[in-house]
Structures are given as structure tokens and as C-alpha cells.
Design a protein around this nucleic acid. Sequence first.
DNA 1: CAGTATCCGCCGAGATACTG
DNA 2: CAGTATCTCGGCGGATACTG
Lengths: 140, 140
Amino acid sequence: MEAGFPVWAKDELARKMAETGADGCPVRDVLSQVSGKWSTLLMMALSGGALRFAELKRVTPDISQRMLTKTLRDLQRDGFITRTVFPSKPPKVVYELTDTGRSFLVPFSALVQWSLDYHEIIRASRRDFDEDSDLGEEDA
Amino acid sequence: MEAGFPVWAKDELARKMAETGADGCPVRDVLSQVSGKWSTLLMMALSGGALRFAELKRVTPDISQRMLTKTLRDLQRDGFITRTVFPSKPPKVVYELTDTGRSFLVPFSALVQWSLDYHEIIRASRRDFDEDSDLGEEDA
DNA sequence: CAGTATCCGCCGAGATACTG
DNA sequence: CAGTATCTCGGCGGATACTG
């Protein structure tokens, strides 16, 4: 247990995570945003300031129309971003992070940084694992 | 932009996240573990110390056999946990967090804490959103 | 420009039954 | 006890076409 890493109040967090009540546990509920393929990427894109629909699409080249719309609506619904319509012609819609959204990016950015730091280690671990499992295979 | 939250080096992180190279960007690659339904829960369960297969199953009641096995293998492959087999009869297999796994839980726990802190706010935001969209509906 | 609507494939995940 | 092996389903996400 004394592997150089501090012991947080994790026992309690672990219990909280396991609380799978009738309507789902709070943690999974919120973290489902993280799991979405585009939610976090769009929020990161908005971290530099407000952007309109087409701009978000441009800075996120491989997202589909459908998913862009849907993800933005979900983020708005959860209060991570605001959606402001300027009824011009053609219309102009601007998306912007809320305080909640910005606040989310603080712990999330730490996780992104972690994944950058450990990416190589993890890739190496995978290679080792896959090689070892190959050793036992005598295919036809 | 001066909403009370600091401006990290997020611009660079955002760019890193957008790097969707041929074999996928490093961030999404690593964060796919987070999105898995059980990976993080199992790691949290192991944060208190090593556990064997049946024990993990007991503390995670609604996981299926299949998913428990699969998730554990994925975590092992990525180097988050170790798997140690004691060739007794009946067999005994013990799972334990690696240093990488423990290190992951540091930023991740912050995110869990955040989701606990903001859960109510988010639920409220959803209610507002859903009510407002109901207003415009004159169903048959 | 900023969306909807529709169709469809993939795969994460559950349920169940079997094995060393 | 600690797994495999199959079958199945829901839903995320992509592609394409249409609209105010």
C-alpha cells in the first residue's frame, strides 16, 4: 500500500460510486458525459471562448452533423454550456461554457494531462501483454 | 473569461485532444477506460487493497460474469492492475492495483469528487431544460 | 447557417449455460 | 472458484438527404 502514492479519502468515494440507487448513482450519471465520444472534446474547444455552430464543426472535423447537434443539446441540458440564438438571417447560434462547464474542465484537464503522461507506459504494457499471449498460440 | 476559474494551459491540452491521428489520439485512447461502465468502479474497489475474483464480484453486485472477466483483462492489459494466480484447488486469483493504476485514481478521484459536488446543480439544470421544452408542446 | 429526419452498422453489456 | 462460449439487445454514432 505504501507505493509512493498518498491515500486519499478514497474509501468513501468508492462507496459513493457503488451506490447504484433506483435512478442510478450520481457519479455514473455525471460521468456519462465524459464517456461520450464528443462531449469533452467540444468543451475543450469552447475553453478558449464562445464559438458558433459552424466554427465548432470546423475545429472538430470528423464529427457528424447529427452528433454535433445532439452532443451540444445534451451539454446544454446538463448546464455545461449555453446556447444563444441571434435571430439574424441567416441565423447565428453561439455556444459558450457556463461556470459549471469551466469548473468541470479543471479536474478533467488533470485527467487529460495524466493520460498524456502515461500514454507511453500504457502502450508498452499492451504490447507486452499481447506478445505474451501470442507465445502460447500454436496456430495451424 | 474571468469567471472565477483559472486559465490553465488548456489551449494546448485541447489541441492534444483533437489530435486524431491514424491510430487514434492518445487521450481518447487512455480515456476509453474511464468510459467503460465497470473499469473505474473495479479500480476504486481495488483501491483498498488486493481482492480475488469472487470478492470483486461480491462488492460489485450487478456486474455480469462476462463483464467482470473482460474488464479485468482489459485493465490488466493496460497495466492498471496485476493478476496473480495461486494454483491451488480450487484456484485462487488475486487482482491488485499497479502503481499506474493507483496513480490514475488520483486525478480520477478529483473528477468523482467534482461529480458529487455538482450533481444537484446538474439535475436541476436538466429539470429546467425539460420543463421549458415541455412548454412549447401542445400535444393531441 | 443551423439544424431535422431517416436508415443502418457496430459493439458494449446482460443473460444464460457450460468447464478445468 | 474462476473463468469460456453463445445469443441477444439497446443505443451510440456515421452517412445521407431535407428544411426554415
